[in-house]
Write a protein that binds this DNA or RNA. Structure first.
Lengths: 191, 191
DNA sequence: GTCTATAGGAGGATAGAC
DNA sequence: GTCTATCCTCCTATAGAC
């Protein structure tokens, strides 16, 4: 019961974070969407920052589950492409929580949350292996530092190009994903 | 005198927007940094949103000045590269104001600000010409919609990869610019 | 653990004197 | 146009009954 209630809370937080971001999301809103009183929320989570942290842990678990599901025999480059595709699909579906990279109180909470840090490290390690493997076999540019590539992949989860193209209304979600996937891996220059 | 005072205000706003973003910036801070009382600020600008809009107009003027300064004989592709380089250098120097893409009150104010809209359209038109020229001569991928390319270039002004790499401390600003320039135009895949 | 009610404080905006 | 002082709204968080 308690676990189910907390899952419902995190689910609501996840969608609100995806829709309006951390600053615009209010705790009153969360409570209203869950259907309980605000004071009850604070019995489950000690602060707004902890709500966001819990949502990020949930998102990281989803990501890990997706990584696990990728077929072993897939090439490293294709694995990375699939991850980026999945990330952008999540974002377009309103399932990808987005946090401000500046808010200091939030950063402090995240750094203190073991589940978050562990999840982040595990995902990064897995992606790092694939990046290095892809570079070793020459499918990803070996001149780029692996860390820069990792950040570039992560950045697709908060790329404003997706929402701008979506607002334009000229392209389907699938087309948007294909476009940004192309600019990410193939670049803007003609090949 | 009045103009000079307002320039000083906008200058402060510009740096605060670059440093902490619209939500985290407070009007008290702006007033304190300018060295005047908050009430005086409101004699010059009617709202916090208008402060941000004025800073964006200033940034757009800077951008236009840079576009004007690019040598006529430069190839379209090289012009675009120079613009992206300049944009990222501004960002790393703390000169590029960043606004949330969600805040509705801010969006409404921006849409009502003629100077902002005109500047945005002029910059976009100029870049659009170069994009199409580059595609016509085959240096930029002709299969990508011009609007997607435009957004991709704009997005370099709010790319979190720059600050992440800067926080890592492993690269100089020049190296960071070169790296992201490479991932933007050449892509992650080996050529 | 859930509620109602409220404390406490931050921050945008204004009143009114000078 | 600048100031001091204040208003007022919104939001995070808590008190205390059940």
């Amino acid at each position: 019961m308690l676990q189910a209630r907390e899952d419902a809370i995190i689910h609501v937080v996840n969608h609100l974070l995806a829709e309006k971001g951390f600053d615009a999301m209010t705790v009153d809103e969360v409570a209203a969407n869950v259907g309980i009183a605000k004071a009850s929320l604070y019995k489950h989570f000690p602060s707004k920052e902890d709500l966001a942290a819990a949502a990020m842990v949930r998102a990281l678990r989803h990501a890990q589950a997706f990584l696990e599901g990728i077929a072993e025999e897939t090439t490293p480059l294709e694995k990375l492409r699939q991850v980026v595709r999945w990330t952008m699909e999540q974002k377009l579906a309103g399932e990808m929580p987005s946090l401000p990279s500046q808010n200091s109180g939030l950063r402090a909470t995240l750094l203190r949350t073991q589940d978050y840090m562990n999840g982040l490290i595990e995902v990064s390690d897995r992606l790092g292996e694939w990046i290095e493997a892809a570079q070793a076999q020459g499918s990803i540019n070996p001149q780029l530092p692996a860390i820069a590539i990792l950040y570039t992949l992560y950045a697709r989860a908060c790329d404003p190009v997706l929402e701008f193209l979506k607002m334009g209304g000229q392209h389907t979600d699938a087309q948007i994903v294909a476009l940004v996937l192309s600019t990410c891996f193939d670049g803007l220059k003609a090949r």
